[in-house]
């Protein structure tokens, strides 16, 4: 993915400077996404895209040349988000069940791990995975490569795991104790009660916060650019470096924002709709 030997800090500086430039140009950090923000962004972007360089090529035309590559990068962001969500959810489910386990030791361990990863900055976790994990594993003579993007998936899966664990614990705690008592008095074991009575009721309650977490994770996948993974932000930075035209910054990074907005906003909408529906039904 990345040919340079020590790619970590220089791209970080570049990316941060570039992002700061975009934010300065827009007069502040991008706010929480709503449709009207998307429209404003779109207009800003359209304006910037009409700018022309000395040779008369519009920023839009330049963007079109680069768009296939950038979208490929965006596809990579989505892939990272899928994988991190899948691993994070799987591990988080186990950790969440550990948090409500009858065994005191298991419970203390699970609560400790959950709280640790929930209260750690995502970027720091990402750096740790980059530096701590080897670039390949040798298992029984076979070499399994372990590229940066896989490390990024693991780095992002860790906070997802902790958050899913907490979502699960919270959902179980929100089920009235009468459900446990009714099942207990019918002769259900603890395990049967959990799997047949409690958890099925939790799925519905967990869906909105889980989807919300996914949207946050997707937006956080751009952090992988800081550690040199060739996702959309990294590719945008490289494209801009190749073009070396200051007038392209706004439209290129604007394009990145629009891609994420178009992907994340429907998730936010659906989450809100589900929340409203469950609030009525619940």
């Amino acid at each position: 993915m990345n040919g340079r030997a020590m790619p970590v800090l220089p791209p970080a500086a570049e990316a941060l400077a570039a992002r700061a430039a975009v934010e300065r140009a827009q007069g502040g950090a991008a706010p929480r996404l709503r449709l009207r923000h998307g429209l404003v962004l779109g207009l800003l972007w359209a304006g910037a895209a009409m700018a022309q360089d000395a040779a008369g090529e519009t920023a839009f035309a330049a963007l079109m040349r680069w768009a296939p590559l950038l979208l490929e990068g965006f596809g990579f962001n989505i892939l990272i988000s899928f994988l991190a969500m899948a691993f994070g959810t799987g591990a988080g489910a186990f950790l969440g069940l550990g948090q409500i386990a009858p065994s005191r030791g298991l419970r203390a361990f699970s609560v400790g791990v959950t709280q640790f990863f929930r209260n750690a900055p995502w970027l720091v976790l990402l750096f740790f995975c980059m530096f701590l994990l080897p670039f390949e594993f040798v298992v029984l003579g076979a070499t399994i490569p372990f590229p940066d993007w896989v490390k990024a998936v693991i780095g992002l899966a860790l906070p997802v795991m902790a958050n899913v664990s907490e979502i699960l614990r919270g959902a179980v705690a929100s089920i009235p104790s009468g459900q446990w008592e009714a099942a207990e008095s019918l002769g259900y074991t603890r395990r049967q009660t959990l799997w047949r009575i409690i958890l099925p009721q939790c799925v519905r309650r967990m869906l909105p916060p889980w989807m919300n977490l996914y949207a946050i994770l997707t937006m956080a996948t751009v952090l992988a650019s800081i550690v040199g993974v060739a996702e959309m932000m990294t590719l945008t930075g490289r494209a801009l470096a190749a073009e070396n035209r200051a007038d392209l910054l706004l439209s290129f990074y604007g394009f990145v924002l629009i891609c994420f907005f178009v992907y994340c906003y429907p998730i936010a909408l659906l989450t809100r709709r589900l929340e409203a529906r469950f609030a009525v039904a619940g």
């Binding site: 009235p176 009468g178 459900q179 008592e181 009714a182 099942a183 019918l186 002769g187 259900y188 049967q192 047949r196 009575i197 099925p200 009721q201 519905r204």
Partner: peptide
Amino acid sequence: FQQYNLFPHRTALQNVMMAQVTVL
């Protein structure tokens, strides 16, 4: 119980059936 404590994610019939299948 005072608060019934039926299992809200299952129908009336399933509520009456579930424990018979799982427990008995």
